[in-house]
Amino acid sequence: MNMELIAAGLKISALGLGGVFAVLILFYAATKVMLMFSKISAAKQKETARR
């Protein structure tokens, strides 16, 4: 068994799976921010309509 290859594979696995989580955390944060802005904007529109 080629230990150098195994070590390289483990490195790719750690960085790869970690990377997938990191990118999806950013997707999550971006979606939350977009939802937050849309809520604020909807609330403002409601307020304006009530006035």
Partner: peptide
């Protein structure tokens, strides 16, 4: 959007299989 994390976790098989193929 919380469901995004399940999408990430279910990619585990990719890396496990890669290690298996190397071994």
């Amino acid at each position: 959007p919380f469901m995004l994390f399940f999408g990430a976790a279910a990619q585990f098989g990719i890396f496990f299989t890669m290690m298996f193929a190397i071994s």
